[in-house]
């Protein structure tokens, strides 16, 4: 799986996904092919109905394609059972959702520990250690025992990102991760993603907001279930600079 001296984390070959709605067949994906290499920060853009969500579900091993091949970290996913995919998600994928999806009345550390709870190979001591490290990585080292309802939106999303990092996944899948946040907090989260990218993490950021692609390394645009455009960004903007340029008096 070596290409250009870099490892392919994700490899899609002619992925098709059909849904049967009543008597009609809806073609959500009509032959999508691309590779994502280790350490890339990729945005996937598309309007609603472009097949963006279906692609995200496929990449996240929540769904299997009707035809085509999908290799995640060299493992073929298409013929996997529901349980096998659950185990694969547990060790290879970190999800970040638009609405954070933290457990209610639960501390930051317990939320971050969650994926490791389903991995019998991790001891409770290792689990706690990994959770603390992840929370430090997202800048919440001082909020370990705060409960989810005692935190701001930005903080909750940081906890969610820490949760996605805790199993040291092959890829982080973010679904509109800044969609529920105000401008300033959105930039703070983008700064965090750029920092994680700089540390070598592979990130896929699905969004419909065209502003965000200026801060990513590569952008794939979907339309009508096909890849319309796949370009590397020659002029990556710094989210930190953008954050500094924001008017200071803006309310959080």
């Amino acid at each position: 799986m070596e290409d250009n001296g870099k490892k392919k984390v994700i490899s899609l070959k002619d992925i098709r996904r059909d849904f049967i709605v009543g008597s009609e067949t809806v073609h959500a994906l009509r032959g999508v092919s691309f590779d994502i290499y280790e350490g890339e920060f990729v945005t996937i853009m598309g309007k609603s109905g472009s097949g963006k969500s279906t692609l995200l579900n496929t990449l996240g091993c929540l769904d299997t394609p009707t035809s085509g091949e999908y290799y995640l970290d060299g493992i073929s996913v298409r013929k996997m059972s529901k349980n096998e995919r659950a185990v694969l998600r547990n060790i290879k994928i970190g999800f970040v959702f638009q609405s954070y999806n933290l457990l209610a009345k639960t501390t930051a550390i317990e939320n971050v520990e969650l994926p490791l709870m389903y991995n019998p190979k991790v001891s409770s001591e290792q689990r706690k250690q990994a959770a603390i490290e992840s929370l430090k990585m997202v800048g919440l080292g001082d909020r370990l025992y705060h409960k989810s309802n005692q935190m701001s939106g930005g903080q909750m999303q940081r906890v969610a990102i820490a949760r996605a990092l805790v199993n040291n996944p092959a890829v982080i899948l973010a679904d509109e991760a800044t969609g529920n946040l105000d401008t300033r907090t959105s930039f703070e989260i983008l700064v965090l993603f750029q920092k994680l990218h700089a540390e070598g993490k592979t990130i896929i950021f699905v969004t419909h907001n065209p502003e965000i692609l200026q801060y990513s390394q590569r952008n794939i645009t979907l339309a009508d279930g096909k890849v319309k455009e796949d370009v590397y960004n020659t002029n990556i903007l710094s989210a930190a600079d953008a954050l500094a340029a924001l008017p200071v008096n803006e309310e959080d």
């Binding site: 996240g60 929540l62 529901k82 349980n83 659950a86 185990v87 998600r89 547990n90 060790i91 999800f95 959702f97 999806n101 457990l103 969650l114 994926p115 389903y118 991995n119 949760r163 199993n167």
Partner: peptide
């Protein structure tokens, strides 16, 4: 749904 997406099996 969250538990399942982070790797809980049925």
């Amino acid at each position: 749904g969250l538990r399942m997406s982070v790797g809980a099996r049925g």
